[in-house]
């Protein structure tokens, strides 16, 4: 069994002006994204950002702005994002950033090895924006193609990240 850790952080500045400005920008971004998603919904592709899962009572859900597999994190920033990871690195990270996050939301990082679900990591997103990640300790037997499916509580996928564990 792989060993997973679940970690999260809200890097929020204390300024109220900055808070209001951020909220306004987030609202604008949400509106722009909604219209964009309306146009693109029919041709939403695997691996791309899909229409945001709605929150409770039909409210807009969080928006995934970044999702990568990486070798490490440095100050909540993914380092060495890649699609191939050596088992010698011992650990691989799935990094996701959401902005905005209208309300507390549960998301999942589902780890698959050759289409077989091996672990599900439950993560909580907090407003107004949030970065979160999960990671996996690597073993010799983990070599092969992997995917991490980032979904909301209802199982709707934000994105699927594909990578390989190699020698």
């Amino acid at each position: 069994m792989n060993f997973f850790t679940i970690q999260g952080k809200i890097p929020t500045p204390p300024s109220s002006f900055f808070k209001r400005a951020s909220a306004a920008i987030a609202l604008l971004i949400v509106l722009a994204m909604i219209s964009f998603w309306h146009c693109r919904s029919a041709e939403a592709e695997d691996g791309l950002v899909k229409p945001p899962p709605s929150g409770e009572k039909g409210q807009p859900g969080p928006i995934l702005t970044e999702a990568v597999m990486c070798e490490a994190l440095s100050g909540y920033t993914p380092e060495n994002p890649a699609v191939v990871f050596s088992v010698a690195r011992q650990r691989v990270f799935c990094f996701t950033a959401f902005d905005p996050v209208p309300q507390k939301t549960i998301i999942y990082h589902k780890w698959y090895r050759r289409d077989v679900l091996t672990a599900t990591v439950k993560l909580q997103l907090n407003p107004p924006r949030w970065v979160t990640f999960s990671n996996m300790q690597l073993r010799e037997s983990d070599k092969g193609p992997w995917q991490v499916k980032i979904t909301d509580a209802d199982g709707r996928a934000f994105r699927i990240l594909r990578y390989s564990i190699t020698d």
Partner: peptide
């Protein structure tokens, strides 16, 4: 970066 440890 590769050698840095994950955040707490």
């Amino acid at each position: 970066a590769a050698e840095s440890s994950p955040p707490a």
